[in-house]
Simulated scan of single mutants.
Amino acid sequence: MHKLLPFVALLAFAEPVAAKDSLGVFGEWGAFRDPQVPRCYAIAKPAASRLRRDYEPFASVGTWPRRNIRGQVHFRMSREIDGDRPITLTINDRRFTLTGGGGDAWAKDQAMDAAIVAAMRSGARMVVGATGTNGRRFSNSYDLDGAATALDAATVGCAQR
């Protein structure tokens, strides 16, 4: 059973105002459309961990057609981030330094978003790591199986609206 399915089920039980249209589950990734905004996104949960978490982590790549934003990368980290330390993303042999704060991390600009999405399409695994407010390093690992298809589904899902 895919680890994303419980996450999909959680989204399905969200209140109707926040209803999402499922565009499909592809490997470890899902694609959704939120017609209220409108926005579309591909999303995944990281590998399971027994370590303490401050937040429920995920990785997502979103599109907001009315804002002319495509392929924006966002990570909800499992821990509160020390804002003075680097946040790194590694996809196969590519390494990116992200920006962020609180429990969130993003690409620094649109060019980095595009480079990350390109690496995700051809990658097998990605790891995002940071230093928590307790001074300890932590990371969240993602299987990229299905990521490219979910990214495509999210892009097409918003192009049809």
Rank of each mutant, 00 (worst) to 15 (best):
M1E: 14
P6W: 01
P6I: 01
A9P: 09
L10M: 10
F13M: 15
P16K: 12
P16S: 12
D21Y: 03
L23G: 08
G24L: 03
G24I: 02
G24T: 06
V25K: 04
V25S: 11
F26S: 07
G27A: 10
G27F: 06
E28S: 11
E28M: 05
W29L: 12
A31R: 02
F32S: 04
F32W: 12
Q36N: 13
V37Q: 12
P38K: 06
P38D: 11
C40Q: 00
Y41L: 06
Y41V: 00
K45Q: 15
K45T: 15
P46D: 05
A47I: 06
A48E: 15
A48C: 10
S49G: 09
L51I: 06
R53S: 08
A59L: 14
S60M: 12
V61S: 01
T63H: 10
W64S: 09
P65C: 03
R70T: 07
R70P: 00
G71M: 00
Q72T: 10
Q72E: 14
R76Y: 05
R76E: 14
R76Q: 13
M77R: 07
I81G: 07
I81H: 05
I81R: 09
D82S: 07
D84G: 14
R85E: 15
P86C: 02
P86N: 03
P86M: 02
I87C: 05
I87F: 03
T88Y: 13
T90I: 12
T90W: 01
T90L: 07
I91M: 09
D93G: 08
R94D: 13
R94L: 03
L98Y: 04
L98N: 07
G103T: 00
A107F: 02
K108Q: 12
K108S: 11
D109H: 06
D109V: 10
M112D: 04
M112V: 05
D113N: 12
A114H: 06
A118M: 00
A118L: 03
R121P: 05
S122D: 15
S122G: 15
S122N: 13
G123V: 06
M126I: 00
A130T: 04
T133R: 14
N134I: 01
R136W: 09
F138N: 04
S139W: 05
S139M: 10
N140W: 04
D143T: 06
D145R: 14
G146C: 00
G146W: 01
A148I: 08
G157W: 03
C158M: 05
A159N: 14
R161G: 10
